[in-house]
Design a protein around this nucleic acid. Sequence first.
RNA 1: CGGAGUGUAGCGCAGCCUGGUAGCGCACCUGCUUCGGGAGCAGGGGGUCGCAGGUUCAAAUCCUGCCACUCCGACCA
Length: 462
Amino acid sequence: MAVPIDCRRCWPPSSGENPSSMRLSRYFLPTLRETPKEAEIVSHRLMLRAGMIRQQAAGIYSWLPLGKRVLANIEQIVREEQNRAGAIEILMPTIQPADLWRESGRYDDYGKEMLRIEDRHERDMLYGPTNEEMVTEIFRAYVSSYRALPLNLYHIQWKFRDEVRPRFGIMRGREFLMKDAYSFDIDQEGARAAYHRMFVSYLRTFERLGLKAIPMRADTGPIGGDLSHEFIILADTGESEVFCDRTYLSMNAPDAGVDYWDDAAMAKIVEEFTTPYAATDEMHDEAAYNALPEADRLSARGIEVGHIFYFGTKYSEPMNARVQGPDGKEHTVHMGSYGIGPTRLVAAIIEAFHDEDGIKWPEAVAPFHVGLINMKPGDAACDEICEKLYNALPASGVDVLYDDTDNRAGAKFATFDLIGVPFQVIAGPRSAAEGKVEIKNRADGSRDTVTVEEAINRFVAA
RNA sequence: CGGAGUGUAGCGCAGCCUGGUAGCGCACCUGCUUCGGGAGCAGGGGGUCGCAGGUUCAAAUCCUGCCACUCCGACCA
């Protein structure tokens, strides 16, 4: 028998351990057995209990390792789908000069939700609640020809809106992460095509996140038209009441092969997804809804996880963002903006996927794929099997959180149920002696006892 | 911003009414025993009692002011 070597204090790992996998004994996972009293909704309670976030002030949170991993996974999916749809990533600052906002007139209009700051030179600054002005400034500085269009620039950046009443944890924080994309086109027709690309991109993004997001017509304000949609996911604890055709539940987003530059195809998909009835309470048309067959009506609570809209020349006009067209004339560009809130999505996903024991992460965003539970550290068979799995799975791209602690079985199960890792691989003395482990599926609670090789193959194949 | 409420150890709470050396459970540390669904026993560490004034011999406790946070409503990615 090999001499056991306690290498838990060796860090960074010299063995080539995949850093995307972790030993629990070396991780920072401050879980809570009891729920802090301020947490009212389930996602907030579970995020605090699972050690994902730490509140620093009203509506302002630190992201702890587990939360950070989920957030990063969401960001990456959003990023990939934005890129696929032709948007180009940039990064604008959180702090902006007030002068830009004076140009658009919003410095005075925005009100107290905007956090205003003065720097040491007594210059008026602000912590950006959004970036239309800044991206328009970038655009006008460099783009002067229609040949550069269409153009869509996005970034994923922290925003601050000084909400009167932050609540529901991260769901309605003051500081939040947002992906905001901004499209520039020479005319409304081009802007419509840009809008459609983002619409389709959103369908794919939310589907990849494991969510059923339903596009609902939103108020376009003074601009009017049909180019504003909120993407709503259904959850019992949603903030607003929504009404839609049940048919949405069985609709699937287009696959990755769609051609975003085929305007007609894009328009067709958008039409398909905007034809069935769907509205939030403020846009609700009782008569139209009641015209649906009783069985098709779906009335539920919803959480807004994305919002896209066309706003024409609202910023390009006052800020002089113009390009020269093929006709030799100057054209004020038509713009749209497209937001997704990754931080809110973390909470929204939990609202949609949890049970009384904890979170049930969809695989695409899970902080780890597998929770490897060594039921009896020190037992030769358990240790050997766990080390084998802990080496094999990460090597194949499966992120593992290995519970190598000597806590009791019940505590380990409770922790992994709480943090919602999709699969628990359990190595206990009885089965380990036969070279087997148990696999528990967190989503449906099903269990299987398989050989170590089968376990490896199952995750690697998936 | 209107209404309600709470601040005592990392988390959940008691103590306050009736002033007198700050306590319980969880978590944490040590030891022993346990070991497949948040173990048991024993020992231990940790607190400016939100802050500032005031009353008093003495304030977590009484008085005044402030601050922070939460919840309900109106508003929003």
